[in-house]
Design a protein around this nucleic acid. Structure first.
Length: 587
RNA sequence: GCGUUUGUAGCUCAACGGAUAGAGCACCGGCCUUCUAAGCCGUAGGUUGCAGGUUCGAGUCCUGCCAGGCGCGCCA
């Protein structure tokens, strides 16, 4: 609907250029979209259904007072003032559009015929987007923070898909590097323990219970096979000469952990199109090629990095004065050049990450979206820098950062400590509250802000619980239709013109906003906008329900109201679906 | 020290550069007991951390401060 008004205004401005009211230079700007005039929903209800600032933006170029120009625009608008739509000038020069009740009511059959596609659009023109998210290291179970990333990424993918992008979901598995060796050693150490052999904790290891479980499974499957390999763990190990665990043990362990993660994601209802292994990059020489490419562009040199000042970096450490292989990230807006190779000649994580993102770019996507934990925020610039260096494209990668989640119960914080091994896994929370609560709740804040997750409230069947509040609005619609049957009432010959109450027209207006909410949430990568919209819609719906009798005696009125709430139920269901939350028919 | 992010009502948070900055909870006052869930109406609550700047117009953009989070290594 907004697009319609926008086109109307644009056409009118073109006409004013031809008439000479507006200078010729406006025309090219208009065609290129170079003018930032807007058609928007006013916050203030009395300002109409739509409003445009066109006269304010163009006043200077037209050398006219904003209100005078507004009058010219108004006169030229090809709108018949036939009672469908009404316009007026207000404030400093806004032009406000008021839709008539008749026009508003048309929306109900539109929604009912579009059903689950209402709110969708073709804005994305089928452009290909790759959303990479979760990508939790395969070294242990997912915790709550990973869950937030998972839910956010999936919601963004759903939103982009709804507005017409071709979306694929990808999980990047960090199955190379030091950490997987640490993991393999942790398993071998526990393997010895299980077999009752002498075992000493390696200098660094993963303490969680899951490691022991995996070791037990390994023992079950392979029995004595790893006795020799585990021998070094019978005595204290020197940090500098740690044994490399056998590939089979590492693979077995990673496969187990990934399977566990996959299960969490399945409970959440998230499916990936691609699982991309970091290891394949190393094996197929992808990293070498990327480095060669950068050498060709003269973006690599041997140098020394300055030591960071202050903070808790140990300034007595001399290792950073060593000559290393550096990428000229500063030429692309980063704050420092970045290391690509370690002293032992192996690649840094960053080198692999460049190769990975370059691989994504080569696969031909028009847009890459990454969802990362906020603790990785410092890497955004360098990855974008590298991507620009490799592809020449500046805005290819969009990174969304998600902040921490705090679990609370009974108003008190649930402490999570990885060191003490008492951290709460995502699985535990899912079992406690269910996937709907987790998904909805994780989308109630903008992703950049911290989030408190109240375990008690998320389970509560009260209106304080936002998940319940919205889902219940949906269920209420269905319960009314059930009641209708129970009383053997007909749905009635709905006469929509009987919908005259301000609450009814407000509800319709709100239903009309839905497509715009979906669009803005998708384009800004801010799924929480959808959540807020649904909360508002649920509130308006509940208010209507509480103040008006839907199942009225009069069949014409009853039918009209039933159509309205059916449309409302449809919009709530569509919104919940975009969040990945179920829309229950009864509760 | 540098980067990044956040700072909005007592609390938790919204607000695509728009008009008088909004919800929920809590508080206070008043109704109500319904098509299933304590609902409904109303009052009050603000110098949007501070100071400048950009413009028709700034919570939003720019600069500088203040405060919290995260990050700043050849860890991933």
């Amino acid at each position: 609907m907004r697009a319609f008004v926008f086109k109307l205004v644009t056409a009118t401005l073109e006409q004013l250029v031809q008439e000479g009211t507006l200078p010729d230079e406006v025309l090219p700007l208009l065609l290129r979209g170079g003018l930032d005039f807007k058609v928007e929903r006013p916050r203030e209800k009395s300002h109409g259904d739509f409003s445009t600032n066109a006269a304010l933006v163009l006043a200077r170029m037209a050398r006219m007072k904003p209100r005078d120009l507004a009058q010219k625009i108004l006169d030229a608008l090809p709108l018949e003032q036939d009672g469908e739509t009404r316009c007026e000038i207000a404030g400093p020069g806004f032009i406000n559009f008021y839709l008539s009740p008749a026009r508003l009511r048309q929306l109900i059959p539109e929604i009912l015929s579009q059903r689950d596609t209402y709110g969708h659009s073709r804005l994305g023109e089928g452009k290909r987007v790759l959303v990479e998210f979760v990508s939790a290291n395969p070294t242990g179970p997912m915790h709550v923070g990973h869950g937030r990333g998972a839910v956010t990424g999936d919601a963004i993918a759903r939103l982009l898909s709804a507005v017409g992008f071709h979306v694929e979901r990808e999980y990047y598995i960090n199955d190379a590097g030091n950490q997987v060796d640490v993991l393999g050693r942790s398993v071998l150490y526990r393997y010895r323990e299980i077999r009752g052999l002498p075992a000493v904790k390696p200098p660094s290891y993963y303490p969680g219970e899951y490691v022991t479980e995996i070791a037990a499974a390994l023992n079950n499957q392979d029995q004595d096979l790893w006795l020799t390999a585990s021998e070094p763990f019978g005595q204290p190990l020197d940090e500098n000469t740690l044994p490399t665990p056998p590939k089979e043990v590492v693979d077995f362990t990673i496969a187990r952990v990934i399977e566990d993660i996959r299960k969490d994601l399945e409970i959440l209802g998230i499916q990936f199109d691609h699982w991309f292994s970091e290891r394949t990059l190393h094996q197929e020489g992808g990293i070498d090629r990327v480095l060669a490419h950068l050498v060709e562009k003269n973006l690599i040199y041997q140098g020394v990095l300055e030591r960071p000042k202050g903070g808790d970096v140990d300034s007595s450490d001399e290792t950073d004065l060593r000559l290393q292989t550096l990428f000229r990230a500063t030429e692309f807006g980063d704050d420092a050049d970045r290391s690509l190779k370690k002293a032992d000649g192996s690649y840094t994580y960053f080198a692999a990450d460049i190769a990975y993102h370059f691989d994504k770019a080569k696969r031909g996507y028009d847009l890459l979206v990454d969802v990362w934990g906020a603790d990785h925020g410092g890497y955004v610039k360098r990855v974008q820098a590298a991507l620009e260096a490799m592809t020449g494209r500046k805005d290819l990668l969009d990174v969304v950062l998600t902040q921490m989640v705090n679990l609370t119960q009974g108003g008190k914080q649930v402490r999570m400590s990885k060191r003490a091994g008492t951290f709460v896994t995502l699985r535990e929370v899912l079992e406690e509250t269910g996937a709907d609560a987790v998904r909805f709740w994780f989308l109630t804040r903008s992703s950049g802000a911290g989030l408190d997750f109240d375990l008690d409230l998320a389970k509560a069947k009260t209106n304080d619980n936002p998940v319940f509040y919205v889902q219940y609005a949906h269920a209420r619609v269905y319960s009314l239709f059930a009641k209708l049957k129970e009383r053997s009432l007909s749905e009635g010959e709905g006469d929509l013109s009987r919908l005259v109450a301000p609450e009814e027209l407000d509800l319709i207006r709100l239903l009309g906003v839905f497509p715009e909410v979906v669009e803005s949430a998708a384009l800004s990568r801010e799924p929480h906008r959808l959540t807020y919209y649904l909360l508002e819609l649920a509130a308006v719906f509940h208010g209507y329900y509480n103040n008006y009798r839907i199942l009225d005696e009069d069949p014409e009125l009853r039918g009209a109201r039933l159509s309205l709430i059916r449309a409302a139920g449809q919009v709530i269901a569509n919104g919940l679906t975009l969040m990945g939350v179920s829309a229950p028919v009864s509760m």
